[in-house]
Structure formats: C-alpha cells, structure tokens
Write a protein that binds this DNA or RNA. Structure first.
Length: 474
RNA sequence: GGCGGCAUAGCCAAGUGGCUAAGGCGACGGAUUGCAAAUCCGUUAUUCCCCGGUUCGAGUCCGGGUGCCGCCUCCA
C-alpha cells in the first residue's frame, strides 16, 4: 500500500500521486513573525516537518517552501484590528523591520531546538512585493480583480469554485452581520489584494499609488508560484487557515494560472491546553522556553506534539509532557539494548533469531505512516518490538537489523537519542561509580547507598545490571 | 445565524460494520535485586458521551441531544 493522504479538498483519503514522478513540491504556511512561536504554532510546523520527512523516507525529492510573513496584513477588509508587527513598532518606537527580523531569527532557533529540518526556502513576504504586484496586475487584467482608489479587491463572484475548500457559501458568509459594509467592495466577501494607508509604516510606492501594502492572502500565492510554480503537490497549514486564507489563495492562484493550484491540502488540528483553548489570560500560551524551564528537553516536546494524529485535537498538559518523557526514555533504552545485542552482548543465542519480528515491526510502522501519517499506529509497532527485544527474542544479526530499523524510524520521527553525549563531569561520576562498586564488594550498603543518593541529587540514575553497573542522566 | 471537526480506561491515544476494543504513561500484585533502578509475568474499558434508528451484527452507518474545538475578524 502506498502513501494515502487525507485531502481537505474533498474530505477523504486519497493515494498520493506526485505531479512529477519522484518529486514533491510542497508549500507550508509559516509564521507571522510578530512574536515567539507557541506550542500550538509549533504543532503545525512539526506536522509539516513530519510530512516532509516521510515523503523523503518514501524516496521523494522534496522541495519544501515555508513562508515568513513579515509584513502586516493589516485587517484585510476593515480598519479595526491592528497590524501586529506595526503595533509593536509603535509601542516600542522600534523599526518594524527590526522587530520582524528578530522574531524570524528566534523562530529558526526554536525550530532547530526541536530538530526540525530546514525547508528548501523560507521566503519573506517583503522580498516578494514585485511578484505579488505582477499577479495582482494580471488578475485585474483578466477581470478577476478591480481597483478602487488605491485599493485592489478580488471579485469572488468571478470565481465559481469559491467555497469549495471550506464548504462556505458566499451567500451565507455575511449572515453573522459582523462585517461592516465596505462601500468600496462590490460584494462583502470580496477580499483585498492590495491596500492603501498612509499611516502604515511598511509601505510601497506602486502603480496603485504611494503608501500601499499587500493584502494577506496574496503573499502565499505569489511565493508559492515563485518558488514552486503554478501547480504544486501539497499545501499545508493549521485548521484555522482553511477559511479564508486558503480559500482565497485558491481563488487567486487558479484565476491567475487558469489551472489547478495545489493537489492536496492538509490541515493540522489545533492544539488545546488543559482541555481548552490556549489564551494569554489563562497564562497557558507556552513556548519552547517554557518547556525547557519546566525541565524538559525540546525533543520531549517534539514527541508530545507528534505522538498524536495531526488531524485529531491534541490536549497539552504538563502531565502529558511527563508521560512523553517516560515513553521516550523507554525508546532510548531500547536503542541502547539493541546496540549491546548487536555487539554480541546478551540477546538470543542464535544470531538470526527474531528476524521476522523486526520485519513485522517495520511493516506495521510503514503501514501506519502510510495511512495519512498515523503516528500512533507507527509507535505501537515500535513499542511492540521493544517487548520482544527486552525478552531477548532477538539474536545478534536481528538486533543489527532492528537497530537499522530504529535509525530509519528516527530519521522520520527524530526523537530517539541514539548517541550518548559526553558530559564534563563524566570522569567524576565514573570515579563515584567505582567507589560505590568497591563499597558493594565490601557489602558496605550504607556507603553504597550514600553514593547512589549523592549521584541521584546530581541527576544521575544508577542501575545495577547483570553485566555491571551503568548510569544515565535523568 | 452559517460552515466544519472531535467525544474510546485514572491520563494520553489507535481502531477500515463481524474473531477476545492496539499501543504508551500511571496504578496494583508477583519475579528479579543487598535495597533500588531497569526488565519480565499478571491485573487494570462486558464496553466505546446520552437517546433513538438502520442491520443477522455498530465504538464504527443514520437522526436528535449534550459538551469541547476551529472558521465566518489577525491567529498554526
């Protein structure tokens, strides 16, 4: 069975077929750099990373583009609400460009901490003003957009498929009556491609006049086109992007090119915290820093955010972080155990014993991941293998193969610790372990336990196995 | 008001109408250990939010509730 993707466009699983054999062109909606990414944002980016890694595992050459939104899409339609980058700039008296660049750098640091692979390109909206203007001009020319006094709007009535992705009907959109009528627009659902406002700090002089800036949706259409072409394979984002953002992207891009935009649309569900939504007032909008401050490695957050299915709501709590840490510890131990067995220490006597168990685990993992990135299924296969390994059902050769399998798994999930990093006080700890060994030989349990407690206080866990004493950092 | 999603054990979480409802964490009992840790064995959902329906058969399909989440306004 090949890779099946749940396509938001059509709402069903479909076999993945690339436009060009062996290649995948993927666009991931990235961050708006007005603040530090929180764990909810990170879930979406980690999902994109997982998808990219799985596609690569399947042998595809993936071109991955993730945009950096560094310009305010000041309220696309109305004048209330405020451009978040500009708001900060005005408050602090700082150049908005500097603010955006600082957040962008922070974003890359956070992703690196989580082991996210670098996308092929991270295009910035502000570096693609020309490309956006080119599309806007063409849309006006083709009659899909109209200009009114320096503002340009997309005419949704000209695009009959508008609503196809989200299921919204244009007639029902203003039923809530929350949108103030903008007299300039022909239809309330028309959205801005280009706006005009002299008060805006980040602005450009164009054929539409001075003091202009882009609407929110056009940047993604323009950047996807610039870096991936008019027709791409996969487009991802958070579930909140379905409407209006992605709906508008489809309208713009397809009206512009005359052909299909993205074949597969994938959306990650929102992350909840403590059973509800994250909110600043509840103080539960966490970042990578908060996770580290709570004593967890970033990879534990990576595991927490990847262990559930991306289309299932995920509830973040500190209890789950602890759960993840323990589960991850078990996978680290599995890797260590396999390394030992593959080197001839322990395991089944027959070298080839258990080969079928490894094959079965590999098969189940692949089947799970091929099923729309069903990580829980994939993990179950790995934990199943762990039981077999700990029961010494695998011989030396099978262990070597299992190790190879775990490396493959890790190439996709990126959460298992495969190498023990050296610490500065390793020698010191080894000396204490040696002293304890002597105490134990002398049956001086009091001293032995004292040393163990001392190490425990330093975060070192001592384990007396059949083959001798080992230690690990907690 | 409109559009869409979710609801499975103490917690997290799979589950394609049909054998005994995956897996993880936790808990309890046992083995092992100088004591621990790790590991192993066993126990931990007669039942899948509630009500009704379709079916020989439903956690899985349909209808109605309830709760939570997303979108319709910037937001992963």
């Amino acid at each position: 069975m090949g890779f099946e993707i749940y396509n938001s466009l059509g709402k069903q699983k479909e076999a993945f077929r690339p436009i060009e054999a062996g290649k995948v062109r993927m666009y991931n909606c990235g961050p708006t750099v007005y603040g530090r990414a929180h764990i909810g944002n990170l879930r979406s980016f980690l999902f994109a990373d997982l998808l990219r890694r799985w596609l690569e595992h399947l042998g595809y050459d993936v071109k991955q583009v993730m945009n950096i939104t560094d310009v305010g899409h000041l309220v696309a339609d109305e004048e209330e609400g405020e451009d978040k980058i500009e708001a900060q700039a005005k408050r602090s008296g700082t150049d908005p460009w500097k603010i955006a660049r600082a957040h962008e750098a922070q974003f890359h640091e956070d992703l690196a901490a989580l082991g996210v692979r670098k996308a092929s390109v991270y295009p910035r909206a502000t570096d693609h003003i020309e490309e956006m203007l080119e599309m806007i001009a063409a849309l006006i020319e083709k009659g899909y957009a109209y200009e009114v006094d320096g503002n340009v709007y997309f005419d949704v009535s000209r695009f009959e498929r508008y609503g196809k992705l989200s299921g919204n009907r244009v007639e029902d959109l203003d039923a809530g009556a929350r949108i103030e009528v903008n007299e300039e627009k022909r239809h309330p659902a028309d959205f801005a491609l280009w706006k005009h406002d002299a008060a805006h700090l980040m602005k450009w002089d164009t054929r539409f006049g001075p003091d202009g800036f882009p609407g929110w949706h056009i940047e993604c259409s323009a950047m996807a086109r610039k870096h991936l072409g008019d027709h791409i394979d996969i487009h991802t984002g958070g579930e909140d992007n379905v409407f209006p953002h992605h709906e508008c992207e489809i309208a713009q891009s397809e009206s512009f090119s005359g052909g299909p935009f993205a074949n597969y649309w994938m959306h990650a569900k929102f992350l909840q915290v403590d059973g509800g939504k994250m909110s600043k007032s509840l103080g539960n909008v966490y970042t990578v820093q908060d996770v580290v401050d709570h004593g967890y490695e970033p990879r534990a957050l990576r595991f927490t955010l990847l262990r559930g299915h991306y289309r299932q709501p995920l509830n973040f709590t500190w209890g789950i972080m602890e759960d993840s840490k323990k589960a991850l510890d078990g996978l680290d131990r599995l890797y260590e155990k396999l390394t030992a067995v593959a080197a001839g220490e322990g395991g089944a006597t027959e070298a080839g014993a258990g080969a079928e168990l490894v094959a079965k685990a590999r098969e189940e993992f692949e089947a799970g991941m091929n099923d729309d990135l069903n990580v829980p299924r994939g993990l179950a296969a790995i934990f199943g293998l762990r039981g077999e390994v700990n029961e010494d059902r695998l011989g030396r050769d099978a262990a070597a193969d299992a190790l190879h399998f775990l490396d493959e798994v890790n190439d996709v999930l990126g959460v298992i610790r495969t190498e023990r990093e050296a610490g500065e006080d390793d020698a010191e700890i080894d000396a204490l372990i040696a002293a304890r060994k002597q105490a134990r030989a002398d049956k001086n349990w009091a001293e032995s336990d004292r040393i163990r407690d001392e190490l425990d206080a330093r975060g070192i866990l001592v384990e007396d196995g059949a083959a001798g004493t080992t230690w690990r950092r907690k």
